[in-house]
């Protein structure tokens, strides 16, 4: 019996110091056992390393930033689809997810499948809504509040106390130890990401992450827990190790079953010094370290593709514990013509 061959478009090819998940997702797809792939990269910038990395994307296209609006994105995807006849798109950035969710029906009409969270899942897990989320699903979350005026820093100083986390709506998080730092970070974040800014209680402890996949019916198809071993100055994991913590994995399954989560996700957890887990953030997409999950036996990109194609992959059971991922930098030598072609024509 011949294997299916899917053409899959993947975003997030910026394999930089704060990497997008695209390259790791593609590596997982290329190792899929259930199907063969042709990979179409979707890039926002002509210097995203994944565009030029050998063996990653078969062809890559530039796409417009989310700020250009969904019409511009749709138009571009239609043009790409005429060339490539896409089966699946896997978007990998928080900031682009909303546009792709909006286009889900239109793309389905063109025969392009995705497996994304629902609008309500996407919204209620948002950093701004995390305290309500924790209350609704019985999950410990740090106290927090979204503010739109720096004067509110004074108002919430007492209840949250210093040190305090100051977070952007989409990205960036800083630890402020006093009011001066808090105001400084507030300004820094609003300049880059706009309002609101999220103030969050600082939880002392050790950070753990889980990546997983929910089938939308409450079943956990995959869940792999990791402890960061080496962190960049942006707080990104540069090395991590797979761990087996029943409490953490039970909590993950509770998250998936109670929210009936649909799609890939990452839970950022903090284990406090008294052994309690606090949910710090839910990223509604596959994380950049997903290749560790593939490496320990849970190919999340493959299972997500099967779900997108309407199949019902069996939940993964165990995974290898004590396996590390260690990221590295590698200088590619790229011909100027390739860079020129991609910049001018928008595809390579």
């Amino acid at each position: 019996m011949s294997r299916s061959r899917y053409t899959i478009a993947v975003t997030g090819l910026n394999a930089i110091d704060s990497p997008g998940p695209g390259v790791a997702v593609i590596r997982g797809l290329r190792e899929a056992k259930a199907f063969d792939v042709r990979i179409v990269g979707l890039a926002y910038e002509s210097l995203e390393p994944g565009v030029y990395m050998p063996g990653i994307a078969d062809r890559t296209y530039l796409i417009p930033y989310p700020s250009a609006g969904i019409e511009a994105l749709m138009e571009r995807l239609e043009a790409i689809n005429r060339e490539e006849k896409l089966d699946v798109i896997i978007p990998n950035f928080d900031a682009e997810l909303y546009s792709f969710m909006k286009l889900e029906q239109n793309l389905a009409g063109m025969g392009i499948h995705m497996f994304l969270p629902t609008f309500s899942q996407f919204e209620e897990r948002h950093k701004v809504n995390l305290p309500e989320f924790g209350k609704k699903y019985g999950i410990d979350v740090p106290a927090g509040v979204a503010i739109t005026d720096p004067a509110e820093l004074f108002k919430h100083q007492k209840e949250l106390d210093f040190p305090m986390m100051i977070k952007g709506k989409w990205y960036d998080a800083y630890i402020a130890y006093n009011m001066e730092q808090a105001r400084n970070y507030y300004n820094k974040i609003t300049a880059k990401w706009g309002l609101p800014v999220i103030l969050q209680q600082f939880v002392h402890g050790t950070e753990y992450n889980v990546t997983g996949l929910g089938d939308g019916d409450g079943n956990t198809i995959a869940a792999v827990a990791m402890r960061k071993q080496y962190i960049t100055d942006k707080g990104k994991a540069w090395a991590g190790i797979s761990i087996d913590d029943r409490q953490l994995l039970d909590l993950t399954r509770h998250f998936v079953s109670s929210t009936r989560w649909r799609g890939g996700f990452e839970l950022e957890m903090m284990k406090s010094n008294d052994g309690r887990y606090f949910l710090m953030e839910i990223n509604p997409r596959i994380p950049a370290w997903v290749y560790l999950a593939v490496g320990v036996g849970q190919n999340i990109p493959e299972a997500l593709t099967l779900l997108a194609m309407g199949e019902k992959p069996a939940p993964f059971g165990q995974y290898d514990v004590g396996k590390l991922f260690i990221r590295y930098s590698w200088d590619l030598i790229v011909d100027r013509n390739d860079f020129e072609n991609f910049s001018v024509t928008g595809s390579l």
């Binding site: 753990y208 761990i243 087996d244 004590g322």
Partner: peptide
């Protein structure tokens, strides 16, 4: 029980990831 100990004196705790 879950702690892995090698002859070289390397310990790994699989539930916390500490070594």
């Amino acid at each position: 029980q879950q702690i892995a100990i090698s002859d070289t004196g390397f310990l790994f705790n699989p539930s916390t990831g500490e070594s």
